[in-house]
Design a protein around this nucleic acid. Structure first.
Lengths: 174, 174
DNA sequence: GAGGCCATGTAATGAGTTACATGATTAT
DNA sequence: ATAATCATGTAACTCATTACATGGCCTC
């Protein structure tokens, strides 16, 4: 069910085609929160249209259909956002890896942690730039900027955790 | 494919039955990285046994079977952990919600952010206690302590992000 | 006109959840 | 004895990925 809310949310932000949505899932939101492939998106857009939660608001070249959220769709989304979160799906393959490294030989573990330490620093910086670009000039926060800043905080956290793990490693080495 | 590595990793940590694994997925690892239900675990344990990656190392009451990782299983897990991460599945329903709140009315958004701010502070503290309990007395880091500390860093990050979002909100209010 | 990207869709397969089903052991 | 928990399994269904399939538009 989460997919439909992700679609409603992205479309409320601004109207888009199935193709556009596929691109957006490949970055931002899809990197942290929820991703989907076009083969799942197109059928869901059809269903949402049938249920009156979205509608075609424009057409373009190559059979392009641009969808927008209806009033019913907005209400549906709001209801979901304000409902109790009850623990939903969590799936994060990268994290799974990190959780399992404790059984590796120390040199393998250290290599991986050092990789994480370096990668996350780079990613945090990149996202900080993204955030600055997004907010440059405007006085309010565009939709994507919450996600971008969340990414910055998250990567910094992973970075700090990797540093902590490496330090612990060194402590126990001698 | 991630499920089998999660199982190999948990079993390498210490032998366990399908039932035990189900419980462990319901906490720690299952809260942040990967979760699974017993109906998915039992068939996978059968397949892993058939492939010689795990084996029954003990039996108990009520038809209980305790599994342990074989040498082949250890090698398989290590190969996976040391392979290039290439972006894998990400699914996080709670985060999806947070990404979509930008379209809500300010008062709704603030309420949700304040909830997040309070909840994450509580969760971070709880996990810090868990970590202390886990490491109390021992000199090395038990497997679960990496996960616990990761949780601490993550919740603190979410907490700081929520505070940031609320501050931005106030700034733009007047 | 050739290659790359835009754009939509369906089919087959795999992964994951919910519901169904059964029975043993333990604590009260 | 009765309820709670331990313990394993299968069946039906839904959700998600990979592969198949088609064609228009744009740039060089």
């Amino acid at each position: 069910m989460s997919l439909r809310y992700a679609l409603l949310g992205l479309l409320r932000d601004r109207p888009a085609s199935g193709y556009d949505l596929t691109q957006r899932f490949a970055q931002g939101i899809g990197r942290y929160a929820w991703s989907a492939k076009h083969s799942q998106i197109y059928p869901e857009l059809r269903r949402l249209t049938e249920e009156g939660l979205i509608e075609v608001v424009g057409e373009g070249a190559r059979g392009k259909k641009v969808y927008g959220v209806t009033e019913a769709g907005r209400a549906e989304l709001r209801d979901w956002l304000l409902s109790e979160p009850k623990d939903g799906t969590i799936r994060n393959e990268l994290l799974l890896r990190l959780f399992l490294i404790s059984g590796l030989a120390p040199e393998d573990r250290i290599r991986i942690l050092e990789d994480v330490e370096a990668e996350t620093a780079k990613l945090a910086e990149q996202l900080e730039d993204t955030f600055k670009t997004l907010t440059d000039g405007t006085d309010d926060l565009p939709a994507g900027s919450y996600a971008a800043m969340f990414g910055v905080y998250s990567y910094r956290a992973m970075h700090n955790w990797a540093r902590w793990a490496l330090e612990e490693q060194h402590k126990r080495d001698h």
